[in-house]
Every structure is written in structure tokens, then in C-alpha cells.
Nucleic acid binder design. Structure first.
Length: 587
DNA sequence: TTAGGGTTAG
């Protein structure tokens, strides 16, 4: 009876199990034995009832069942881990005279679950030193750690171990391997294992889908979900969460709306995790009103709900609303975490308010998050965007373990403030300290050079991208280099670079180049650029006007008149100019 | 023993 309640995994059942034991003692005068205690511990562990679990431990000690057997001790460890007391779990483990595989597994699993995979790995090494042979449970847990730590080599060696020992890979083991490979950026390897299994379950599909999402392949993720549905497997809540991510990543709100409809029909909209993901998806599409409605309907909002709402506001020009939501969090007795504060910093950055930046900085200190690299990098950018390059630099210097992102953030901060030489110096220092620049580093440094007019320096850095750093220049890099040349009047060279862009992405670069042609009164290049631009975007009245001006300023009145005639024939009126000024609503 | 969510640099 007690075991039945214990297996039911609900807190009410935990109390029922304890009630049954009381009845057993009072009415029948029977004392609980080891089996009863194991069941009670299991009930407490499933319900997370620490008080009850400790009481059972105390009872066992008082009754002298303290020369515990392995099963009872392992149940104690499991109960302590599930109730969040890892120390007690370790202490029970330490006192065990004979440790069975189950107790090792319990401790390894506990460390994996609280996000300490490194310790889980250390335990595994100790286990091998003590000549204990790992079982499938140990290996599945370790594979999960390998994924989290991106330990591809160790993950592969576990896979190799399984093959060498000719272990038949079941659904769970294969799923764990697929997950490990996906998290270590080896999605294809995961896919091969996935294809080998005929009878896949919903979890395996979800893991594969999530692997594709992590790899930035939302179309493959969608294809996999479709295959799953075709195979007659019903989506579960985790599938729904994946699908909402697919929709956001593909930029296809239609999919998200369809999934929303499914959620409503299935009556699972009250699930807080699903509601959070839905809110976040609408937020990403800028559908703030929809996001807000979903947020308001969540009855038990958790920190993710609040943070998602802040992010949605912060990223779509509603910074003051983001701040307002942040202030409400405290009333809910929730403690903002690292992610909440990073989102808040985005809002502060877009307001450009230094006082607020300092206020959040204080908050970060009070919550002891001042050493988190994620927070430091965001704060650095926020200070720079709020006009205080000094504070940004000071913060950068104070970061003991700088990440590549810290360097990128500081280079871009110098760029924002027109300090091109400082940005170049920092870039060189970054290389000297052995950090690998990436595409974002180059976007920042090239844009700093182009704004500061440092043509030679910028061009030499652009060339070094593929020659020295194996970074292939993308459209943005080309645009920066084109800008670099066109601003300094080297229009032929700029036009030469435009040819490297795919035709559809040439418009804005050509637009800027045409303006430069006017500034530098270069009719030859202007004519070529203007015509190419008119081919690509014949409805842009600005191009006709600019080209006509270039002709007339060069004295080519006939050509200018012809262009104006064509514009008139196409009835392209000049767009009136306008400006928008937002009044400061937050001090 | 296997799955999911809010996040930093342009």
C-alpha cells in the first residue's frame, strides 16, 4: 500500500503514504521495516518533502537500523538529492561501507541534475579507480554531462565503450547519444544514430528536433516534427515548445498561430511552460499586445514569465514598460536572476539613461551577480550606450576572465564613441592575448574604421580576415568595406567590392555609393551605379532624384532631364521627409 | 537512465 502511494509521484500521495504507516503502527502495532522505510523515502523524494524524508532518516537511526543496507542508503541519498540537499547525500555516500553501483549512480545523477556535470565526471573517474563497472544508467547520465560540458572526446569514448562491449543500444541510450552529439555540434552524427532506430518514441523525436534548433536549422527541425506526426506519434508538451521555437526561428508567425490554435483546442494553454514559450514567441515577432495578453492570463507566473515579458518589451521599443514589469517582480516575492537582469540592461540601453544603468549596477552587486561574465559584458555595453565610455572601459579592465565577447563588446564600445584608433589597438591586443576574432569582431572594427575614415587600416584588416583568421567576409563586412572606400572617394574600388555581394543584397550598398558619387561629383561611376540601382529597385524615387542631381551638377542637363521624365512617367512622387522625436518619459 | 523555456558582443 505504502509502495503504491510512493510510486504515485504526487505530494498528496506522500502524505497518504505516511498516514498509512501511522495506521499500521497504531492499529496493528506493526513497526515499519526496511522495505517500508525505502518506500517512504521514495514518497518523500518524489514529493520533494524534505521534512518527511529527514524524519524517516531520524527514525531509522533511532531504531538502530543504522547499519543500513545498500538499498536503504541509496534511497536516503536519492531522497536528499531530490530535496536539494546534495551535501547530506554526499555524506550518506561517504559513510557507506560497501557502495553498490546504484549509490554511485544516485550521486552522479544528483550532480548532473543540479548542473554540476564536472563533479559528476570526477565521481565517474573515482568509480573506475575503485573497479566498479559502470552500467547503462551511469553512462546515460555521463552522456548528458558530456553534452552540457561539450566534452565531445569523452562522449565519443563512452560511445566507443558501448560498441566495444557490444552493448545493445536501446531507445534511451541512443537518445542520450543523439543528445550528446547534438550538444557538441555534431548534429549529423546524431542524425545517423536517429536513422538507425526503427521504432522511435516521442522523446527521441523531440531530442532530434531540439538538436536541429540548437544547430540553427529550424527547417530541418520542422521537417522532423512532420515526419513524427506522419509516423502517427502524438506531439507532447515538449514537442509544442520545440514547434514554437521553430516558428520564431523561421520567422514564420503562421506556424506559431497554428500551434497556438492546437494549444487552445487541446486545453493546455494553462501550462505555464507552454504559456511562457507562446508569450516569448509573440514577443519575438513584435506582437507585444498578444504577448501581454498571454502574460496577463498566466495565473502562476514564474521568473521565466516575467523575464520573457521584460525581454519582449525591451526588444521592441517599450523600454519603460520593461522597467515597470521589473519593478513588479518584487511584489511577487520572486528574485530576479542573471537572465532577468541582462534583459533589463537591454531596456536601459535603449533608453540611454546612465542613472538607471548605475541603479541596475547596484542591484547586480546586491544580488552578488557582479562576477558573472554574461552580466559584465551586458553592463559594459549598457554603459557605452548610455554615453559613459569611461565606465565601460573601467568595467572591461576589471574583468579578470575576459571572454571573446568582452573583447568584442569593448571594441564596439570604442567604435560607437568614434574612437577608431583605440578600437584598433584593442583589436591588436586581443590577438596578442590569443583570442580568436570572429565575424562580429570584424563587423565592429570595420565599422569603426569606416566611421573614422581609417581607410588603409580598415582595408588591411578586411584582407586579413580570410588570409590570417579564416573568417569569410559576409554581406555586412563587404558593406563596411564598400562604405570605407566610398566615404573617402575611392569609388571605383568601392564599386568593385559591390560585385562580391549577391544582387538582392546590393541595394543599400549601391544607395550609399550613389550618394558618395554625388559628393565626389563622379559621373562615370554614378551613372553605372544609378542604372544598376534602377534595375534592382525601379520604384525608388530617391534614386531618380540623386542620379538627376549628379547629371545636372556635372552640366549634363539633357541626361538629367531624361531621368526626371522617366520618373514622372512612372509617376514617382518625392517622398516627403519627416522626423520623430520621442519625449522622455522616464527620468 | 533519455526531451523543452527567458540571455551577453554588431
Amino acid at each position: 500500500m505504502v509502495t503504491g502511494y510512493a510510486a504515485a509521484e504526487a505530494s498528496e500521495c506522500c502524505y497518504e503514504a505516511f498516514e498509512v504507516v501511522k495506521l499500521m503502527q497504531n492499529e496493528d502495532g506493526l513497526d515499519p521495516n526496511r522495505v517500508t522505510l525505502v518506500s517512504l523515502l521514495q514518497a518523500a523524494a518524489n514529493a520533494g518533502s524534505y521534512k518527511e524524508g529527514r524524519a524517516v532518516h531520524g527514525y531509522a537511526v533511532r531504531r538502530g537500523i543504522d547499519s543500513f543496507d545498500e538499498i536503504l542508503e541509496t534511497s536516503l541519498m536519492d531522497m536528499y538529492s531530490k530535496c536539494g540537499d546534495l551535501e547530506m547525500s554526499r555524506s550518506v555516500f561517504g559513510r557507506m561501507s560497501k557502495r553498490c553501483i546504484g549509490s554511485w549512480n544516485a550521486l552522479i545523477a544528483a550532480h548532473v541534475q543540479v548542473g554540476q556535470p564536472l563533479t559528476a565526471f570526477e565521481l565517474f573517474q573515482r568509480m573506475l579507480q575503485e573497479d566498479i563497472l559502470p552500467d547503462m544508467i551511469t553512462l546515460a547520465n555521463l552522456l548528458s554531462s558530456c553534452g552540457d560540458l561539450k566534452f565531445l572526446r569523452q562522449g565519443k569514448s563512452i560511445h566507443g565503450y558501448l560498441i566495444r562491449r557490444q552493448v545493445q543500444l536501446d531507445l534511451v541510450a541512443t537518445t542520450a547519444l543523439i543528445e550528446m552529439y547534438s550538444k557538441c555540434s555534431r548534429t549529423n552524427q546524431g542524425r545517423m544514430l536517429f536513422d538507425e532506430i526503427q521504432a522511435k518514441d516521442v522523446i527521441m523525436f523531440n531530442v532530434m528536433v531540439s538538436g536541429y534548433l540548437q544547430a540553427g536549422l529550424p527547417d530541418k527541425a520542422l521537417e522532423t516534427v512532420c515526419r513524427m506526426i506522419e509516423a502517427g506519434i502524438k506531439p507532447n508538451p515538449a514537442t509544442i515548445l520545440n514547434l514554437l521555437s521553430v516558428s520564431a526561428d523561421l520567422g514564420e508567425i503562421r506556424i506559431g498561430k497554428e500551434v497556438h490554435g492546437y494549444i487552445v483546442k487541446q486545453g493546455i494553454g494553462s501550462n505555464v511552460d507552454i504559456a511562457n514559450q507562446l508569450l516569448s514567441m509573440y514577443g519575438k515577432f513584435g506582437r507585444i499586445e498578444m504577448a501581454r495578453q498571454i502574460f496577463n492570463r498566466i495565473t502562476r507566473k514564474d521568473l521565466v514569465s516575467w523575464t520573457s515579458m521584460i525581454t519582449s518589451y525591451a526588444q521592441h521599443a517599450h523600454a519603460s514598460d520593461a522597467l515597470m514589469v521589473f519593478r513588479l517582480i518584487h511584489e511577487e516575492r520572486l528574485q530576479p536572476d542573471l537572465v532577468t537582469l541582462v534583459s533589463l540592461l537591454q531596456a536601459v540601453s535603449s533608453l540611454g539613461c546612465l542613472t538607471l544603468a548605475k541603479e541596475v549596477h547596484g542591484h547586480i552587486y546586491r544580488n552578488r551577480l557582479e562576477k558573472e561574465i554574461l552580466i559584465l559584458n551586458s553592463l559594459l555595453t549598457t554603459y557605452a550606450k548610455c554615453g559613459s565610455l569611461g565606465m565601460a572601459e573601467c568595467l572591461f579592465k576589471s574583468i579578470v576572465k575576459k571572454s571573446q565577447i568582452s573583447w568584442n563588446a569593448m571594441i564596439s564600445a570604442f567604435g560607437m564613441h568614434g574612437k577608431c584608433l583605440e578600437a584598433i589597438d584593442l583589436f591588436n591586443q586581443m590577438l596578442k592575448e590569443g583570442f580568436q576574432p570572429d565575424d562580429i569582431t570584424f563587423t565592429s572594427i570595420l565599422s569603426a574604421c569606416s566611421h573614422g575614415g581609417y581607410v588603409e587600416e580598415g582595408w588591411s584588416i578586411f584582407k586579413s580576415m580570410s588570409e590570417k583568421h579564416s573568417v569569410t567576409p559576409n554581406t555586412e563586412h563587404y558593406s563596411c568595406a564598400i562604405d570605407l572606400f566610398s566615404r573617402s572617394g575611392r569609388l571605383e574600388e568601392a564599386y568593385g567590392l559591390v560585385q562580391h555581394l549577391p544582387p538582392r543584397e546590393r541595394t543599400s550598398a549601391l544607395d550609399a555609393l550613389l550618394s558618395s558619387c554625388r559628393v565626389y561629383r563622379n559621373v562615370e561611376v554614378g551613372e553605372i551605379v544609378g542604372r544598376e540601382l534602377l534595375d534592382l529597385d525601379p520604384d525608388n524615387s530617391g534614386t531618380y532624384i540623386l542620379l538627376a542631381n549628379i547629371y545636372s551638377e556635372a552640366g549634363k542637363w539633357d541626361a538629367a532631364a531624361r531621368i526626371r521624365e522617366i520618373a514622372q512617367a512612372n509617376s514617382l512622387a518625392r517622398q516627403p521627409g519627416y522626423s520623430m522625436i520621442e519625449s522622455a518619459s522616464v527620468q
